[in-house]
């Protein structure tokens, strides 16, 4: 589930509020809040759309987890999914790197 909006990075653009399919976030005067964490479906899509790498979705779908944000930043986990799908300049070649055709029919 969604665990972190990093206040140091978030620019309050509200993109995550718009794109979350299950309406987990709420707008505020400042940075959004995680208003309905238990509605989170662990789809990781808010992370993909956050332009500031300010969000962290824990892979645990059924229960909240304690998170060490400093360690996540240190290990460059924030933004790692965006880099993996090629949604940042440095890795945009990965958008067309799908090798499923080599894997189907195994």
């Amino acid at each position: 589930m969604i665990e972190v909006i990093d206040a140091e990075r978030c620019t309050a653009c509200d993109i995550c509020v718009n794109v979350c399919p299950t309406n987990v976030f709420d707008k505020t005067d400042g940075i959004p809040t995680i208003a309905r964490q238990s509605d989170c479906q662990t789809c990781f899509l808010c992370e993909l759309y956050c332009p500031e790498d300010a969000l962290f979705v824990s892979p645990f779908a059924d229960a909240p987890q304690a998170i060490d944000v400093a360690a996540l930043k240190e290990a460059a986990v924030l933004g790692s999914y965006r880099r993996a799908v090629g949604w940042v300049d440095e890795s945009c070649h990965l958008r067309a790197a799908d090798r499923s055709y080599r894997l189907f029919g195994h």
């Binding site: 892979p59 999914y81 499923s100 080599r102 894997l103």
Partner: peptide, 11 residues
Amino acid sequence: HMRVSQPNFFL
């Protein structure tokens, strides 16, 4: 091939 084909699988 798996890594680049399904990045979400590895999260």
